[in-house]
């Protein structure tokens, strides 16, 4: 493993200053479960690791029905699924945090890191997209906000400019009669990277018979996690039915541009987008019905 310097930043400005000064040779260390492996395997050259875990803002974890969820960029997965109100209101995000790596990974890995690592197969990004999450980014020129769906630009690439860091993820409180669901296909039952991932969020009408709105997002079928816009909008106003769900699944399949690699073939992935989109939608709907 290459040599590098380690800085434990205590404040956001301190971290931003180091990132700004060192540019691409500096990386933020949060959970480290991707970064340390990538540097060890020489897939990434890093001269400075900026540990942000001592910064209060990146550890924030609050939820109320007014402001929704405020999730600090470095909050590890287990804190998310150990918080009851998050499980109740954002179950799709919780689904993802429970399957990222094993228990030991979830002790360190964080949703912010999953975003910044920008893997096309990142499990937490489809739920963030369907839950309308916003990324709060701080840089030398101040703060900006951006929808989670726009954060990743290519495999391993994000919108972050020199000196910028992700500080917080904000997720609005879902309307009543809403729920969300995320699942992925993997050949084992744990410890795998998604061959395909699918997240869905739905809002039903008061009678729980009609879909008021739906959002669907996919992982591992394009260079970045995808918001399946057409599949989502075609469900608005529809009765809950196999037909509607199948149409959405077909629309999701239409935007998938998967590759073949050691984790799965393009044909398998395209096929699975249909299967998983159906299962994600049904899972989210069932959660509303069960509530």
């Amino acid at each position: 493993m290459q040599a590098f310097e380690y800085v434990a930043a205590q404040t956001v400005p301190e971290a931003v200053a180091v990132l700004d000064e060192k540019g691409q040779h500096a990386r933020i260390l949060a959970g480290g479960t991707d970064l340390i492996v990538q540097v060890r395997e020489a897939k990434l050259a890093v001269d400075w690791m900026v540990d942000i875990k001592a910064i209060p803002e990146v550890n924030i974890l609050t939820h109320d029905s007014q402001n929704g969820l405020r999730l600090g960029a470095a909050v590890p997965c287990y804190q998310i699924y150990d918080t009851e109100s998050i499980c109740e209101n954002f179950p799709g995000l919780v689904d993802a945090t429970k399957i990222i790596g094993g228990t030991a990974i979830q002790g360190r890995a964080c949703v912010g890191g999953n975003l910044c690592n920008a893997s096309p197969a990142a499990d937490s990004i489809p739920p963030l997209i369907v839950l309308n999450a916003t990324c709060v980014i701080v840089g030398p020129d101040g703060e900006r906000e951006l929808p989670a769906a726009e954060f990743c630009t290519a495999p391993g690439q994000t919108v972050l400019e020199r000196g910028e860091m992700l500080v917080e993820i904000k997720i609005p409180q879902p309307p009543s009669n809403s729920s969300s669901y995320y699942l992925r296909f993997i050949p084992r039952n744990e410890m795998d990277i998604a061959v395909v991932g699918a997240g869905a969020a739905v809002t039903l009408d008061a009678a729980k018979q009609k879909i008021v709105s739906a959002r669907i997002a996919l992982a591992a079928v394009a260079p970045t996690p995808l918001f399946a816009e057409e599949a989502s909008t075609l469900l608005a106003g529809r009765e809950i039915s196999e037909e509607a769900i199948n149409e959405a699944a077909a629309a999701a399949q239409a935007i998938a541009r998967p590759i073949s690699d050691m984790r799965g073939t393009a044909e398998q992935r395209t096929h699975l987008v249909g299967v998983l989109t159906r299962r994600a939608l049904k899972g989210a709907i069932q959660r509303v019905l069960d509530a």
Binding site: A8, L29, G32, T33, I36, V37, P76, Y78, G107, R108
Partner: peptide, 16 residues
Amino acid sequence: ILDGRLVNSCLVLGVE
């Protein structure tokens, strides 16, 4: 176990 939580020690830096 690091600060009460299970971790993979290969993915933690000593300095952390």
